[in-house]
Computed example of a mutant assay.
Amino acid sequence: MGSRLVAMGHYQPSRVLTNDELARMVDTSDEWIRDRVGIASRRIADTETVADMATAAAGKALANSGLTPADIDMLVVATCSSVDRSPNVACRVAAKLGMAAPAAYDLNTACSGFSYALGTVDHALSAGAARNAIVIGAEKLSDFTDWTDRSTCIIFGDGAGAAVVTATTEGEPSGVGPVVWGSVPAKSDAVRIEGWRAYIQQEGQAVFRWATTELAPLALQACERAGVAPEEIAAFVPHQANTRIIDGIVKRLGMPNAIVAKDLVESGNTSAASVPLALSKLVERREVPSGAPVLLFGFGGGLTYAGQVVRCP
């Protein structure tokens, strides 16, 4: 047995924070931000919580799937920005959606979180531990952003993306390929949110060098394990860190036919939400045919990475 994605959904707050607005807050400019990270705007949540945004995205994915809350027996939320230790975000989402008794847990590997969560759910469904699951990436990074630090406040945004995943039937090919995941513990301090009232801190150059030099071979491993040649990939959805990192990885992948997601231009870096948010928009705009192979690859805090090839819902 295996699993497959059957529907996507996403949510972003209504408030848009532009580069020009940021330039009135810190010493920066629209031109400098676009050149440095490729971001034009980002969405910022006001009263909405991580659980609120996760619920909205999951509700849309559920509606698109044709399933009901009663059909879902597993719910996983990838996030690094929930301010509450307990109850976890997953249980709050399950309660808001009216689910009865799903297995519900949060997972924190920061920006690689959605692919990590999808990997664990795929394993559970393949083993028969659940039948239908929702996997969510949701972040409210604005709660942890130092709005006086121009090196970080230009980067991050808020939002959520979700996927409904179901177990495949006997004889049906799996729509979620084997996960390639791992970490670099020696560089764990490169991206940090430490303490009780913390701001995001990162060693930008260290992350950039790691991402542009070491991740492409790992992404290609995900293609190899799924039995899909790079030239067959219809879309590449990496973590939306910045355009320079994305371009550096793409240059080494050899995927001439792939659409490359760059949702960060309008959404900023939304950590664990970035991959499902970008994929959901591609599906919504019908830019990728249903059933086409899509390479997902998340990377970031930890340092951690995870990726897999999925069939587009």
Rank of each mutant, 00 (worst) to 15 (best):
L67D: 14
G159Q: 04
F208R: 10
V37H: 13
S290F: 15
V135F: 07
Y305L: 05
K140E: 10
F144C: 05
D106W: 09
S188C: 14
R36V: 03
N257F: 06
V176C: 14
A117V: 06
M99H: 04
S112N: 12
T79E: 01
R42H: 01
K281W: 08
L215Y: 13
G98I: 04
R92K: 12
A219W: 10
G2S: 08
D149T: 00
L5P: 08
V26G: 13
R197N: 12
G2Q: 00
V265D: 09
A63Y: 01
I154F: 06
A23I: 09
P289H: 04
M53G: 14
L218V: 03
K60P: 01
R36P: 07
D189W: 00
L17Y: 01
Q201V: 14
T168Y: 00
A117C: 10
S174T: 14
A57P: 12
I44Q: 10
N269H: 02
W196T: 15
A235R: 08
M25F: 02
T49W: 05
R244G: 04
V121H: 09
Q221N: 11
Y11I: 03
A133F: 06
Q221M: 15
A219D: 06
I44H: 13
T145R: 08
A272Q: 04
I44L: 14
L75M: 06
L218S: 02
L282M: 07
N269F: 00
A124P: 02
H123I: 15
S81G: 08
L17H: 01
M74A: 11
A272V: 04
V275C: 13
L97C: 04
L253S: 11
V309W: 00
G177M: 02
H239M: 02
G119W: 11
H123C: 11
G128F: 07
Q308F: 10
D263A: 12
A54N: 09
S65I: 00
I233T: 06
D35H: 11
G175K: 05
E232D: 11
Y116S: 10
V250L: 09
D27I: 03
T304L: 07
V76R: 04
S29E: 13
R225L: 12
S65P: 05
S274T: 10
E232R: 11
L22I: 12
A229P: 03
V76C: 08
E139P: 12
P256T: 11
H10P: 03
A234N: 09
D27K: 06
R15L: 13
G119D: 15
N88P: 11
G177F: 00
V135N: 08
C223T: 14
G59E: 00
G59K: 00
V228A: 04
S82V: 01
C80R: 01
G2A: 04
E48P: 11
I193V: 15
L17V: 13
T212Y: 11
V310G: 07
L253G: 14
E284N: 08
G195R: 03
